[in-house]
Design a protein around this nucleic acid. Structure first.
Lengths: 113, 113
DNA sequence: ACTTACCGTAAGTAATGACTTACGAAAGTG
DNA sequence: CACTTTCGTAAGTCATTACTTACGGTAAGT
């Protein structure tokens, strides 16, 4: 639900691969595990994290369970980038211009990165 | 530079707080550390990770060092969300509609989440 | 030059998390 | 009703990583 959980969920490479594999459509846990280097319980645990983050949803299909991408799960992260950082990005250009004009004389700076 | 490094950099809560604190403007390491519960070297290490991810930049200011937000650092993550998941999101609505119409008869499903 | 202030790095420790094996539950099949 | 398949969870191990203390290095002030 929160953008923090989305970030931590997408930070792990294996979990991100599983999430991206689900782009092909809903899949069962066994099918997800056999095309990967980790065991099936590991995939289940990753899916649990993804589900808690709202990125995937589970559907009982007999004894099997189909996991599918929940597209609205990425909305918190998108909103975070837009609302929290959108203003900063737009305000940055102005500030840079202002500072460069303000300190055009005091030129004792030393850029590193 | 890559969206993976951005995700791992923003996954840690302390590191994310430091990054968000820099929205107020360029700050020195000591100033960042004294308003937080971790030591100064810890902040330095976090800033190193953020710098490698392209999220912040350092500027030598006398014996001090001013760290500033690098606004273009979030671009890889934005691009990842747009290119990789933008198509999936738009294609999802159509697929859902098609599936619901296709399986309007085989109604033995059981939603969980 | 000596001192002070600010910072990065090294080394070591503690904690978080990713993974495995083992087990039990739920649902279809004979 | 047994049997099989599929899956989640528990317990434990191992690797990653976040954190601390200690140290050295650089730049300004006196």
């Amino acid at each position: 639900m929160t953008y923090e959980s989305v970030l931590t969920a997408l930070a792990d490479p294996t979990r991100r691969q599983i999430f991206e594999d689900l782009r092909a459509g809903p899949m069962a846990v066994t099918h997800l595990a056999e095309s990967r280097a980790v065991s099936r319980p590991a995939v289940s645990q990753h899916l649990k994290v993804l589900q808690k983050a709202g990125l995937v949803s589970a559907t009982a299909r007999g004894p099997s369970r189909l996991y599918a991408v929940e597209p609205q799960g990425l909305a918190p992260l998108r909103d975070y980038l837009d609302t929290v950082w959108g203003d900063v990005l737009s305000a940055f250009a102005q500030e840079v211009k202002a500072q460069m004009q303000e300190r055009s004389d005091t030129s004792t700076w030393e850029q590193e990165t």
